[in-house]
Simulated assay, not measured.
Amino acid sequence: MNVTLGVILALSAAFVWALASVLSKVSMREVNPLSLNVIRLLLSALFYVPLVLYLGVPSFSALQWAILVVSGVLGFTLADWFFLEGMNLLGVSRAAILVTAHPIITMFVAHYTLGRPLTLGLLLGAFFIVMAVLVIASEGSRGGGINWKGLAYVFSAQLLWTFAVIVTDWLVVGESAFAVIGLRIGFGALASLAFLPRIEDDVRKLNARGWGLVFIITLLGTILGQYFFALALKFAGSSIATPVTESSPIMASIMAVLFLKERFTGRLALALVLTALGVLLISLYA
């Protein structure tokens, strides 16, 4: 029952992340990726940190606190920013498919560091997802060539996310998932304050509609999405919960094509089919 609930929570996180990604692309017509990431982190911290303090701060060792701080900075301050930069350059659909390599890395690391299961079904699902990533990575941009800068941003983001997910998986054992994710966001927001001088102009030019859009993105992607995912990690473990959330690229790609009018090419269609097969296999055999 716990694993089933974990899968449901992971799918819920995937949906709100997909919707937040599409809305983020719309928001970045007015603000740059760094500004969007800093603002949503600060808004998220205003929600999470007071509640964590009210409900009770976990009793971590000095080492655990140090790892918590580092994972928050790497996973939220840097990785989320890198992904937004990559998404801005590549488009929602292509950036979303590319980050499906992230759960594959997580599956293997979680298996060898935390003893999470790694079955033949998981490996077969991973194969299809890797093929989808290769198809999209080799696709040229609208201008004709491969956007190496966009690829570098996205792949850097998923390496940092992998570390952050493994750490979160370890920290939530015996502790409140809400507290762990809230503290990580809080430390990520604290680190983002260093970028305030660089985003000052963007913040000034945001109108009421822009602030409303950023608030919705924050509510969906950082507050609800991260909380759903943290609970999914607690109930199902990272080797199951993380791959299941990779239904998010499929949802995001469809939304981007429908609502943002992004290019729907044969390569994107093939990548979506491969990703769907991979996610299905992983969900069935996890």
Rank of each mutant, 00 (worst) to 15 (best):
I105R: 03
A236P: 05
L281K: 11
I199E: 04
A79Y: 08
V180W: 11
G125D: 14
G6Y: 04
T113W: 02
L36R: 01
L74H: 01
F264K: 10
A157S: 14
L213P: 00
F60A: 07
L42P: 03
H102V: 14
R142K: 08
L233S: 01
G186H: 08
A20Q: 06
I136C: 00
F76Q: 14
F83G: 06
V38L: 00
I254H: 03
I240Q: 07
P33S: 03
E246D: 11
F127L: 15
M28Q: 09
G225R: 15
L34Q: 09
P249K: 12
W211N: 12
G121R: 06
R142E: 08
L151F: 14
R263D: 07
M131Q: 05
S59Q: 03
I282K: 06
T265P: 11
L51R: 09
R40W: 02
L114S: 09
L78R: 08
T100I: 05
G182R: 05
L281H: 10
V7T: 13
I181D: 11
V31E: 01
L122D: 15
S24L: 02
G225H: 14
G225L: 15
I185D: 14
W170V: 11
V70R: 10
R263A: 04
T168W: 07
L78A: 12
L19W: 12
A208H: 11
W81K: 04
L74C: 02
P50L: 13
L51D: 06
A269T: 07
G121D: 07
R40K: 09
S238E: 05
L213T: 01
A269L: 09
N37W: 00
W148Q: 15
I250E: 02
L23N: 06
D169E: 15
W211Y: 13
L193E: 05
A66E: 00
T242R: 05
L42H: 02
A256D: 04
V203C: 02
A95W: 07
L63N: 10
F228P: 13
G121T: 11
R184K: 15
N147S: 01
G91F: 11
W170N: 09
M1H: 08
L19N: 05
T77Y: 00
A152K: 02
V173N: 07
T113F: 04
V16S: 06
L98S: 01
D201A: 14
S35T: 10
V180F: 12
R209H: 10
T4I: 10
G121W: 09
T77K: 00
F76E: 12
L89T: 06
L53A: 07
T275A: 05
L193C: 10
L274D: 00
V173C: 05
V109C: 00
I254F: 07
M1S: 08
K261V: 12
R209S: 10
S156W: 12
F128C: 12
S71E: 05
I146P: 00
S283L: 12
G210C: 14
I254E: 02
L123R: 13
E200C: 11
V167P: 10
P33N: 03
G125R: 14
G221Y: 03
S44C: 08
K205R: 09
A79D: 11
V257S: 13
N2E: 14
S12Y: 04
A14G: 06
M1L: 08
F215Y: 10
T113A: 07
T113L: 09
S253P: 05
T222I: 13
F155G: 00
L78V: 15
N147T: 01
W148N: 15
